[in-house]
Design a protein around this nucleic acid. Structure first.
Lengths: 357, 357
DNA sequence: TTGTATGCGTTATCAT
DNA sequence: ATGATAACGCATACAA
């Protein structure tokens, strides 16, 4: 309620017309105003603590171009590079990009969208939501063009952008095979979500194509994948203890790989010598692990770009059918899967004596 | 440019007055409208693809309450929990919180603030910026209340929130001392930034208080701290090779700890048996490391909360002097520094080595 | 170069 | 229960 000082106030104080004030205060120097007056007016405006009303300005100049992104608060990090890509394109198209964290809002993404009714935004991209339908309903209430990014829902009711999880997983496993691995385990979590299904399917694709028999014992489930502080995966520990033989491990998410690496080390397996490990997502932590984790990088940038483009088309009046756009992933090879890199990284590992070389 | 359908359009199509339409479309069911008409109007509005103009709505109903956060794109992650805290308070106070990534914008934070002139926002918090002065100037141009969060600048020109880096560092080192460590090294980077200075000072504080002599050889500098893919820290490797004796390591950022742990392992040192390691920041990756990293958690939540409160006071017209508010940190003990935890984590390490070697 | 007046799309106040 | 109309704060077309 402190938005008191208006153009009119300044105009009165300066003893000039509103138009002059408006011109004097314009962002890029307006030609039709006496430099002296401009300075004087700016001075007065400043003294008065005048702040332009972005609202009025936007209203007057035909809406103010902004897009919204609703981001989750569970797994932080992965959506950040997507925002970056989206941001770039949006800026380029003359749009602002507003980011709205869900951050424990009752009702999740849908509720945030309801709140968007009072935010001047023309379209919204929703990250990693499961309640697709609720989101769509909320968006429809306000005729708000909406795009989903990486939602878990098995069947889409809105245009959805995601990585090509199936072929990405296939690439990961094929990489393991190319390293001479034949007994390849998979570490699973979040079953029922679309991406888990797809990544599991990709795993099978690769095995089948290589003529490697599937083995139920090598499908390992993480019990409490939400607990990021878990030291090791009990099921994996069990497999190691039972001496079920395997020489490759595909973790369907980088997040699962950290405890897995600890399990392997605790179980006396050296990575990558005894077991090659590949993750999925290539999140920031991947290269911080020891050894640095080979992973499948999601096309974060393009996901953001595509989302914005789709949104803009939708804003432009085009009807975008609900379908899943799957963008290609990329294999990032690091030491956890590659002997060559692995050796180079830890040359002194077996020596265990400080004074080598 | 598709904002064609307005209240007037709907009113015309429905053959009723604008006021009725407005009432029918109101968020919480307006009492003064016939339920039948309401339904009819809503139907028509939907068919027409009517979307209320948040701008006009905000203009009419006296500004729309929003705060902005300008976040960096370099180090992703750390600001996220701060946003969460800020978001909670903002929501509670009836404010929207808009997040604006810098994401490669020419001119950095200051430029983003310039762009904010067209965004209906009442105050802005800027994360981790170095160009304090530019930010202040930009903010002043628009009389935009501004708060900095964790800026690097050595002297503040705006109210600034940060963690108490000095006492946090002291706590970290005291923890090492409490573990029986006496020869404690520090791993440094970004010298000249305020937080590095403070953390180094805290390190000295702890040593001095414990009567441990400072040793130049134990002050280790990371050369290219920006390169997150670096396998190990060359300077640290050198120290290890030279057999400079130390049994504790304080990394002034978690980020530095990952390569450090690899250096130690490559150098044949066991963590925490031979060397106890503590980081700073407690970012997500900390507990993914092997061993999980003891760290100093910044009070992210409260930082966000304080920022919002400060901003609201400033918006309320109060004059907030430029000063640094330092919030207390918290020691999070994990396996990298504690024998007890370390043992518990890797019980089989020495026992079961079926295939390796 | 400056001033006056109009309208952007809503909601609120008054009539009806 | 509904309709007409006046603001909200600004930018501009037009007049001076």
């Amino acid at each position: 309620m402190v938005r008191r000082v208006t153009l009119a106030d300044v105009s009165r104080a300066a003893g000039v017309g509103m138009a002059t004030v408006s011109r004097a205060l314009a962002a890029q120097d307006h030609p039709d105003v006496n430099p002296a007056t401009r300075e004087r007016i700016r001075q007065i405006a400043k003294e008065l603590g005048y702040r332009p009303s972005a609202t009025a300005r936007a209203l007057r100049s035909g809406g103010y171009r902004a897009l919204s992104a609703v981001v989750p608060d569970q797994t932080w990090g992965w959506w950040e590079p997507v925002i970056r890509g989206a941001f770039r394109v949006a800026t380029q198209e003359g749009y602002q990009l507003l980011v709205h964290p869900i951050a424990g809002i009752q009702g999740g993404a849908a509720a945030v969208i309801e709140g968007l009714a009072n935010v001047p935004t023309e379209g919204v991209m929703v990250f990693g939501s499961a309640d697709d339908v609720a989101v769509r309903d909320a968006a429809e209430r306000y005729n708000l063009p909406t795009v989903m990014i990486d939602d878990f829902a098995a069947n889409v009711v809105l245009p959805t952008i995601s990585a090509d999880n199936r072929s990405g997983a296939r690439t990961a496993v094929e990489h393991l095979i190319s390293q001479g691995r034949r007994r390849i385990a998979i570490l699973l979590a979040w079953e029922g979500s679309d991406y888990t299904d797809k990544r599991l399917a990709g795993y099978f694709d690769a095995l089948d194509a290589a003529g490697i028999a599937r083995d139920e014992r090598l499908i390992i489930r993480c019990d409490d994948a939400e607990d990021e502080s878990i030291p090791t995966w009990p099921r994996l520990d069990q497999v190691l203890e039972d001496d079920v033989e395997f020489d490759g491990l595909f973790c369907i998410a980088d997040l699962l790989a950290a405890p897995a690496l600890r399990s392997l080390r605790a179980g006396g397996r050296s990575v990558p010598r005894d077991v090659s490990v590949v993750g999925f997502d290539d999140e920031r932590a991947a290269q911080l692990l020891d050894p640095p984790l080979t992973s499948i990088r999601q096309p974060y940038d393009s996901m953001g770009e595509r989302a914005v483009h789709l949104l803009l088309r939708s804003i432009g009046g085009e009807q975008i059918p609900p379908s899943r756009v799957e963008l290609p992933t990329k294999l990032i090879v690091r030491a956890s899967s590659s002997h060559a890199i692995g050796e180079r990284l830890a040359p002194k590992k077996t020596k265990a004596s400080p004074t080598s070389r």
